[in-house]
Protein backbone atom coordinates (compact mmCIF):
# COMPACT_ATOMS: atom_id res chain seq x y z
CA UNK A 1 0.00 0.00 0.00
CA UNK A 2 1.27 3.46 -0.86
CA UNK A 3 1.65 5.44 2.37
CA UNK A 4 -0.19 8.76 2.74
CA UNK A 5 3.07 10.43 3.78
CA UNK A 6 6.55 9.09 3.30
CA UNK A 7 9.50 11.06 4.62
CA UNK A 8 12.92 9.61 3.80
CA UNK A 9 16.17 10.89 5.30
CA UNK A 10 15.11 14.52 5.30
CA UNK A 11 17.62 17.08 6.56
CA UNK A 12 17.03 20.82 6.59
CA UNK A 13 19.34 23.70 7.45
CA UNK A 14 18.34 27.31 7.99
CA UNK A 15 21.17 29.83 7.85
CA UNK A 16 23.64 27.05 8.57
CA UNK A 17 21.76 25.71 11.60
CA UNK A 18 20.62 22.14 11.38
CA UNK A 19 16.86 22.09 12.01
CA UNK A 20 16.04 18.55 10.90
CA UNK A 21 18.57 15.72 10.93
CA UNK A 22 17.85 12.70 8.70
CA UNK A 23 14.20 12.44 9.62
CA UNK A 24 12.35 9.40 8.30
CA UNK A 25 8.84 8.20 8.99
CA UNK A 26 5.77 6.93 7.27
CA UNK A 27 2.09 7.73 7.79
CA UNK A 28 -0.20 4.98 6.53
CA UNK A 29 -3.69 5.70 5.28
CA UNK A 30 -6.12 5.64 8.19
CA UNK A 31 -3.50 6.64 10.76
CA UNK A 32 -3.93 9.49 13.18
CA UNK A 33 -0.29 10.31 13.56
CA UNK A 34 0.94 12.76 16.19
CA UNK A 35 4.39 14.33 16.26
CA UNK A 36 5.25 15.97 19.52
CA UNK A 37 8.33 17.90 20.53
CA UNK A 38 9.51 21.12 22.13
CA UNK A 39 9.15 24.55 20.55
CA UNK A 40 11.90 25.08 18.01
CA UNK A 41 12.24 21.34 17.53
CA UNK A 42 11.48 21.58 13.81
CA UNK A 43 7.84 20.47 13.82
CA UNK A 44 6.45 23.30 11.70
CA UNK A 45 9.45 23.10 9.37
CA UNK A 46 8.79 19.39 8.86
CA UNK A 47 5.13 20.04 8.00
CA UNK A 48 6.14 22.77 5.54
CA UNK A 49 8.53 20.35 3.86
CA UNK A 50 5.81 17.71 3.67
CA UNK A 51 3.50 20.25 1.99
CA UNK A 52 6.19 21.41 -0.43
CA UNK A 53 6.41 24.91 1.07
CA UNK A 54 10.08 24.35 1.89
CA UNK A 55 12.61 22.22 0.03
CA UNK A 56 14.78 19.93 2.15
CA UNK A 57 18.57 20.02 1.72
CA UNK A 58 18.66 16.25 1.47
CA UNK A 59 16.09 13.50 1.45
CA UNK A 60 12.73 12.97 -0.16
CA UNK A 61 9.07 13.44 0.66
CA UNK A 62 6.10 11.91 -1.06
CA UNK A 63 2.35 12.31 -0.54
CA UNK A 64 0.35 9.34 -1.80
CA UNK A 65 3.38 8.38 -3.87
CA UNK A 66 3.69 11.80 -5.54
CA UNK A 67 6.01 14.74 -4.91
CA UNK A 68 4.48 17.28 -2.49
CA UNK A 69 3.58 19.81 -5.21
CA UNK A 70 1.27 17.25 -6.77
CA UNK A 71 0.30 15.20 -3.73
CA UNK A 72 -0.85 18.24 -1.75
CA UNK A 73 -3.94 18.47 -3.93
CA UNK A 74 -5.26 15.71 -1.71
CA UNK A 75 -4.18 17.36 1.53
CA UNK A 76 -6.02 19.81 3.76
CA UNK A 77 -3.80 22.07 5.87
CA UNK A 78 -4.63 23.64 9.22
CA UNK A 79 -1.76 26.10 9.77
CA UNK A 80 -0.70 27.29 13.16
CA UNK A 81 -3.31 29.52 14.69
CA UNK A 82 -2.84 33.25 14.08
CA UNK A 83 -0.40 32.93 11.21
CA UNK A 84 -2.64 35.26 9.21
CA UNK A 85 -4.36 38.53 10.05
CA UNK A 86 -7.74 37.97 11.68
CA UNK A 87 -8.68 41.59 10.99
CA UNK A 88 -8.63 40.89 7.23
CA UNK A 89 -12.02 41.92 5.83
CA UNK A 90 -13.31 38.49 4.89
CA UNK A 91 -16.42 36.59 5.96
CA UNK A 92 -16.40 33.07 7.37
CA UNK A 93 -18.00 31.73 4.19
CA UNK A 94 -15.54 33.53 1.90
CA UNK A 95 -12.58 32.20 3.85
CA UNK A 96 -13.88 28.64 3.97
CA UNK A 97 -14.79 28.48 0.27
CA UNK A 98 -11.26 29.62 -0.62
CA UNK A 99 -10.22 26.07 0.31
CA UNK A 100 -11.89 24.97 -2.96
CA UNK A 101 -9.50 27.03 -5.11
CA UNK A 102 -7.16 24.18 -5.89
CA UNK A 103 -10.01 22.42 -7.72
CA UNK A 104 -11.05 25.39 -9.80
CA UNK A 105 -9.44 25.93 -13.17
CA UNK A 106 -9.54 28.81 -15.60
CA UNK A 107 -7.96 32.23 -15.47
CA UNK A 108 -10.52 33.84 -13.18
CA UNK A 109 -11.19 30.86 -10.88
CA UNK A 110 -14.78 31.76 -10.18
CA UNK A 111 -16.62 29.62 -7.60
CA UNK A 112 -19.37 27.35 -8.94
CA UNK A 113 -22.60 26.22 -7.30
CA UNK A 114 -20.95 22.96 -6.33
CA UNK A 115 -18.29 24.88 -4.39
CA UNK A 116 -20.93 26.80 -2.43
CA UNK A 117 -22.82 23.57 -1.73
CA UNK A 118 -19.76 21.80 -0.34
CA UNK A 119 -18.90 24.89 1.71
CA UNK A 120 -22.35 25.11 3.28
CA UNK A 121 -22.27 21.39 4.01
CA UNK A 122 -18.96 21.71 5.90
CA UNK A 123 -20.12 24.88 7.68
CA UNK A 124 -23.22 23.04 8.82
CA UNK A 125 -21.24 20.07 10.03
CA UNK A 126 -18.89 22.23 12.10
CA UNK A 127 -21.76 24.33 13.47
CA UNK A 128 -20.61 27.46 11.65
CA UNK A 129 -23.50 28.05 9.26
CA UNK A 130 -25.10 30.66 11.52
CA UNK A 131 -21.79 32.57 11.49
CA UNK A 132 -21.17 32.36 7.75
CA UNK A 133 -21.72 36.10 7.13
CA UNK A 134 -19.67 37.22 10.13
CA UNK A 135 -16.15 38.55 9.84
CA UNK A 136 -13.35 36.51 11.38
CA UNK A 137 -12.46 39.05 14.01
CA UNK A 138 -15.89 38.72 15.63
CA UNK A 139 -15.53 35.01 16.41
CA UNK A 140 -14.39 33.29 19.58
CA UNK A 141 -11.12 31.37 19.58
CA UNK A 142 -12.85 28.01 19.20
CA UNK A 143 -14.97 29.29 16.33
CA UNK A 144 -11.92 30.69 14.54
CA UNK A 145 -10.26 27.31 14.99
CA UNK A 146 -13.20 25.52 13.38
CA UNK A 147 -13.22 28.00 10.48
CA UNK A 148 -9.57 27.17 9.75
CA UNK A 149 -10.43 23.48 9.92
CA UNK A 150 -13.46 24.00 7.66
CA UNK A 151 -11.29 25.62 4.99
CA UNK A 152 -9.09 22.52 4.98
CA UNK A 153 -12.11 20.21 4.76
CA UNK A 154 -13.96 21.77 1.79
CA UNK A 155 -11.28 20.35 -0.49
CA UNK A 156 -12.42 16.83 0.59
CA UNK A 157 -8.86 15.87 1.58
CA UNK A 158 -7.57 12.33 2.01
CA UNK A 159 -4.93 13.72 4.38
CA UNK A 160 -5.44 16.38 7.02
CA UNK A 161 -2.29 18.12 8.28
CA UNK A 162 -2.60 20.15 11.48
CA UNK A 163 0.06 22.41 13.00
CA UNK A 164 -0.43 22.98 16.75
CA UNK A 165 -4.20 22.96 16.36
CA UNK A 166 -5.11 23.70 19.96
CA UNK A 167 -2.29 25.88 21.17
CA UNK A 168 -4.32 29.08 21.69
CA UNK A 169 -7.64 27.64 22.84
CA UNK A 170 -8.91 26.75 26.30
CA UNK A 171 -9.35 23.20 27.54
CA UNK A 172 -13.08 22.70 26.80
CA UNK A 173 -12.53 23.99 23.28
CA UNK A 174 -9.57 21.67 22.86
CA UNK A 175 -11.67 18.68 23.93
CA UNK A 176 -14.41 19.67 21.52
CA UNK A 177 -11.84 20.02 18.74
CA UNK A 178 -10.46 16.54 19.35
CA UNK A 179 -14.01 15.17 19.28
CA UNK A 180 -14.30 16.60 15.78
CA UNK A 181 -10.96 15.04 14.76
CA UNK A 182 -12.08 11.70 16.22
CA UNK A 183 -15.04 11.87 13.88
CA UNK A 184 -12.91 12.87 10.88
CA UNK A 185 -10.45 10.07 11.59
CA UNK A 186 -12.90 7.58 10.12
CA UNK A 187 -12.82 9.21 6.70
CA UNK A 188 -9.27 10.56 6.36
CA UNK A 189 -5.67 10.22 7.43
CA UNK A 190 -4.59 12.76 10.04
CA UNK A 191 -1.10 14.08 10.76
CA UNK A 192 -0.72 16.60 13.56
CA UNK A 193 2.13 18.21 15.43
CA UNK A 194 2.05 19.69 18.90
CA UNK A 195 4.40 20.75 21.66
CA UNK A 196 1.75 19.58 24.11
CA UNK A 197 2.10 15.98 25.24
CA UNK A 198 -1.45 16.29 26.54
CA UNK A 199 -2.86 16.01 23.03
CA UNK A 200 -1.63 12.46 22.88
CA UNK A 201 -4.88 11.02 24.07
CA UNK A 202 -6.88 7.96 23.20
CA UNK A 203 -7.40 9.41 19.71
CA UNK A 204 -3.94 8.94 18.29
CA UNK A 205 -2.89 5.71 16.57
CA UNK A 206 0.83 6.48 16.26
CA UNK A 207 3.13 8.93 17.89
CA UNK A 208 6.62 10.24 17.21
CA UNK A 209 8.84 12.66 19.09
CA UNK A 210 10.77 15.30 17.17
CA UNK A 211 13.62 17.50 18.27
CA UNK A 212 15.91 17.82 15.26
CA UNK A 213 15.88 14.00 15.06
CA UNK A 214 12.72 11.92 15.07
CA UNK A 215 12.02 8.96 17.33
CA UNK A 216 9.12 6.61 16.93
CA UNK A 217 8.11 3.03 17.62
CA UNK A 218 5.09 3.35 15.31
CA UNK A 219 2.79 2.73 18.26
CA UNK A 220 0.27 4.96 19.99
CA UNK A 221 2.35 5.15 23.16
CA UNK A 222 5.17 7.44 24.13
CA UNK A 223 7.97 5.67 25.88
CA UNK A 224 10.43 7.14 28.28
CA UNK A 225 13.31 6.59 25.89
CA UNK A 226 11.52 8.63 23.21
CA UNK A 227 10.88 11.46 25.63
CA UNK A 228 14.42 11.36 26.97
CA UNK A 229 15.84 11.43 23.45
CA UNK A 230 13.58 14.30 22.44
CA UNK A 231 13.63 16.58 25.44
CA UNK A 232 17.11 15.53 26.56
CA UNK A 233 16.00 15.45 30.16
CA UNK A 234 13.75 13.20 32.22
CA UNK A 235 10.12 14.24 31.91
CA UNK A 236 7.28 13.38 34.23
CA UNK A 237 5.01 11.16 32.19
CA UNK A 238 1.82 11.64 34.19
CA UNK A 239 -0.07 12.80 31.14
CA UNK A 240 -2.30 15.80 31.69
CA UNK A 241 -4.43 14.48 28.85
CA UNK A 242 -6.16 12.09 31.23
CA UNK A 243 -8.39 14.53 33.13
CA UNK A 244 -9.46 16.01 29.78
CA UNK A 245 -10.93 12.70 28.81
CA UNK A 246 -12.68 12.28 32.11
CA UNK A 247 -14.30 15.66 31.80
CA UNK A 248 -15.08 15.48 28.11
CA UNK A 249 -18.81 14.85 28.43
CA UNK A 250 -19.27 17.99 30.51
CA UNK A 251 -17.71 20.44 28.09
CA UNK A 252 -19.59 19.90 24.88
CA UNK A 253 -20.85 23.46 24.70
CA UNK A 254 -18.51 26.21 23.90
CA UNK A 255 -18.73 29.68 25.32
CA UNK A 256 -19.87 32.33 22.88
Amino acid sequence: MIPAVEVKDVSYRRNGTLILDRVSFRVQEGDMYAIIGPNGGGKTTLLKIILGLLTPNTGEVSLFGNPPEIGRFQAGYVPQFRTFDFRYPITVREMVISGRLSYIRGATRRYRKEDYDVTDEVLEKLDLLRLSGHSLSHLSGGEQQRVILARALVGKPRLLVLDEPTVYVDTPTEIQFFDILEDLKRSMTILLVSHDIGVISAHVTKVACLNQTLHTHDTPGITEDMIAATYRCPVDLIAHGLPHRVLREHHRREEP
Binding site: L53, P79, T83, F84, M95, S98, R151
Partner: peptide, 9 residues
Protein backbone atom coordinates in the same frame (compact mmCIF):
# COMPACT_ATOMS: atom_id res chain seq x y z
CA UNK B 1 -5.20 36.84 3.03
CA UNK B 2 -3.03 33.76 3.49
CA UNK B 3 -0.08 33.48 1.13
CA UNK B 4 1.09 30.13 2.47
CA UNK B 5 -2.30 28.51 2.07
CA UNK B 6 -2.60 29.90 -1.44
CA UNK B 7 0.68 28.15 -2.21
CA UNK B 8 -0.60 24.84 -0.83
CA UNK B 9 -3.56 25.22 -3.19
Amino acid sequence: FDEEYARVM
